[in-house]
């Protein structure tokens, strides 16, 4: 089993990757719900601009996104300097890796939730309002349950994207073992060193397993939610 022997750095990379992906997914969910709802249901000036901004990380080279994060949120920048004064530091910390992953995953999450909201007939919301439900109740009792499949799919997509994010992460927070080194950056690091192919392969296998588990979990949840909705 020497093939699968994992050193402390490999373990750290795995734990960090999962931690980063979960944090990125959970932290971006509320904002993604809001943005998806706004794009699906409201019309306001600048809607096209917002849509473009949300989708930008999807079309930009990840290295560019990482660089933009570095110059806006790095400790040398105005915003980053202000944030570090109040105790929030992103550059070269695991939180920075989570932020980079969240930014890269955000368009996928918003897109899945937005499509789901657009598929819900606004007539249900009208019907709920005529029965006495305030907008908050309409959201909690009608809209959210109906958009749940999209939320699940969007979260799983975001989680998978965050697990695999490389370019923006390595640009923004570098590749520090035990601090900012996620599975993809660890694999990259191993491939730079002769004789470390076995360790790289181990991480590749683990990465495949975690992604497959996430995918199966999403299928299972989607089926459960779907049955509750359409069941007899």
């Amino acid at each position: 089993m020497e093939f699968f022997a994992l050193g402390p750095n490999e373990w750290a990379a795995i734990v960090l990757s999962v931690q980063v992906a979960i944090a990125a997914t959970l932290a971006s969910l509320p904002l993604a719900l809001f943005v998806a709802y706004a794009l699906a249901r409201w019309s306001f000036p600048g809607k096209g601009l917002l849509n473009g901004l949300v989708h930008l990380p999807l079309v930009l080279p990840p290295v560019v996104t990482g660089y933009l994060l570095l110059i806006t949120l790095g400790t040398q920048s105005a915003i980053g300097g202000f944030l570090s004064e109040i105790g929030i530091v992103f550059a070269f910390r695991w939180t920075g890796a989570a932020l980079a992953a969240a930014v890269m995953a955000f368009p996928l999450m918003v897109r899945a939730i937005r499509l789901q909201i657009e598929s819900i007939d606004p007539q249900y919301e009208q019907a709920a309002a005529t029965l006495g439900a305030s907008p908050v109740w309409v959201f909690l009792t009608v809209l959210f349950p109906l958009m749940l499949p999209g939320v699940v799919v969007g979260s799983i997509l975001a989680f998978a994207k965050a697990m695999g994010e490389f370019g923006a992460t390595i640009t923004f927070v570098s590749n520090i073992p035990g601090q900012t080194q996620t599975i993809p950056s660890a694999i990259y690091a191993f491939l730079q060193v002769p004789g470390k192919e076995a360790a790289a392969t181990t991480l590749v296998v683990i990465s495949v397993v975690i992604s497959m588990l996430a995918l199966l979990a999403s299928e299972w949840i989607a089926r459960k939610v779907g049955r509750k909705e359409g069941g007899l």
Partner: peptide
């Protein structure tokens, strides 16, 4: 007065039952 405070019921042509 917003819809939900008018205390009117609306019966639509399409029944609009909540599917979930």
């Amino acid at each position: 007065v917003p819809t939900h405070q008018r205390e009117f019921a609306y019966i639509f042509q399409d029944p609009r039952l909540f599917p979930h």
